[in-house]
């Protein structure tokens, strides 16, 4: 187990293999070797670290395509790791657009927390940033992309394109689309 200390001085006992998904913490552990010394995380608050490291009532397994297989009911006996730590970058890329209940709650309920988590994940250097799934998850668009209007709604973004400007962007992107 590894002892982590957050910016608001809370302490967390966490499994080593979980926290080692963070490159920052992994490097710190390598530097200090076998030690009971707590690892300070001055840029991460306790509420955020809980989201990042604590077992959730979320899914437990990922199939070969990266989709979560189990439901919340199975996780009572076998608590899972939060998805932020669960997947490698490659796995994240391969993910389909399925969404777990846990994710949905996580993503849609608290945008402020989401912002904090992204910053924390960046600081901790966790490649499988949860934020990378914003657009894939929460969507039922199995094959295609999430439409721009949905993204606008999700993140409260105003469309400041004129139809002509939008057409222009399409034209300029033609070389790269459908490849």
């Amino acid at each position: 187990m590894v002892l982590l200390v957050t910016s608001d001085n809370e302490q967390f006992q966490t499994e080593k293999d979980i926290v080692e998904r963070s490159v920052l913490i992994k490097n710190m552990l390598e530097d200090v070797g076998e030690s009971d010394q707590p690892i300070p995380l001055p840029n991460v608050s306790s509420s955020v670290l809980k989201k990042v490291t604590q077992p959730s009532t979320g899914p437990t397994e990922i199939d070969v395509r990266g989709r979560y297989l189990s439901t919340a009911s199975t996780t009572v006996e076998s608590p899972s790791r939060p998805p932020i730590l669960e997947q490698s970058q490659d796995e994240t890329r391969k993910r389909t657009t399925d969404i777990s209940e846990w994710d949905q709650k996580f993503i849609t309920v608290d945008q402020e927390m989401l912002f904090e988590i992204i910053l924390a994940a960046n600081y901790l250097d966790i490649k499988s940033l949860l934020c990378r799934r914003w657009l894939q998850d929460g969507s039922q668009h199995d094959q295609g992309a999430r439409p721009p209007e949905e993204i606008r709604k999700l993140f409260n973004i105003v469309n400041d394109f004129t139809p002509e400007e939008e057409a222009q962007i399409k034209k300029e992107n033609e070389w790269a689309e459908d490849r």
Binding site: R146, P147, I151, N159, D160, I169, N173
Partner: peptide
């Protein structure tokens, strides 16, 4: 994914 990148292009 590429498709989402393009989708984002047309958001704003």
């Amino acid at each position: 994914p590429k498709k989402d990148q393009f989708s984002l292009c047309y958001v704003s």
